[in-house]
Computed example of a mutant assay.
Amino acid sequence: MEKDDIHQRLHPAHWKTAKGYANGVMAEGRAIFVGGQIGWNADQVFESEAFVDQVRQALKNIVAILSEADAGPEHLTRLTWYITDKREYLANLKGLGEAYRSVLGKHFPAMTMVQVVALVEDAAKVEIEATAVLPYARSTW
C-alpha cells in the first residue's frame, strides 16, 4: 500500500510489484469521467497514423479535458485502453513509455488494456477512457 496526497494505491505486500500500473487505487473527492479519447487533435484530425503518436495525442486529449475541472494527470485513478493490434502495442513499448511519461509523468493509475476488432473511427488505433478524482479541497464545482 502506497499513499500520496491524493490517492492510496492498493497492492498486497506479498504480490510481485506491478509493471507500469497500480493494481488498485482508492481516492476520495469529486469523480471525473472522461469518455474514450482517440488520437486526433482538437479539430478531429489525425495528424499521424503511427500508434505511438496516436497514444500520445489521446493522452493529451485526456489531460485537456481534466484541465477543464482544474485537474491534472496526478488525479487519474483509472485508464482503460482499447487497442486494435496487440502486436503493434508490444512492438512499441519503449516509445509508448516515453509518450506516456511525456504527457502523464510518472503517475500510474489502475489500468486495463483490451484488444478490440475495430474502433468507430476507422483511422483510430487506440481509444482511452479515464476516471479521475479531484480532492474536495481542490474542487471548483
Rank of each mutant, 00 (worst) to 15 (best):
P12W: 00
P12Y: 01
H14F: 03
W15H: 13
K16V: 13
A22F: 00
A22L: 15
N23I: 11
G24M: 02
G24D: 06
V25C: 15
A27R: 06
E28I: 02
E28V: 09
E28K: 15
A31I: 15
V34D: 01
G35N: 11
W40I: 02
N41A: 03
N41L: 05
D43P: 03
Q44P: 03
F46R: 12
F46M: 09
E49Y: 05
V52M: 04
V55W: 08
R56C: 01
K60N: 05
N61E: 04
A64H: 03
A71V: 13
H75G: 03
L76F: 06
L79E: 04
L79F: 07
W81D: 06
Y82F: 07
Y89A: 08
Y89D: 08
L90K: 02
L90D: 11
A91H: 15
A91R: 10
L93K: 14
L93N: 05
K94T: 11
K94D: 09
G95S: 01
E98K: 00
E98T: 13
Y100Q: 15
Y100D: 12
G105Q: 05
G105W: 01
H107I: 10
H107K: 14
H107T: 13
F108H: 10
A110D: 04
A110Q: 14
M113T: 09
V114A: 01
Q115Y: 10
Q115I: 07
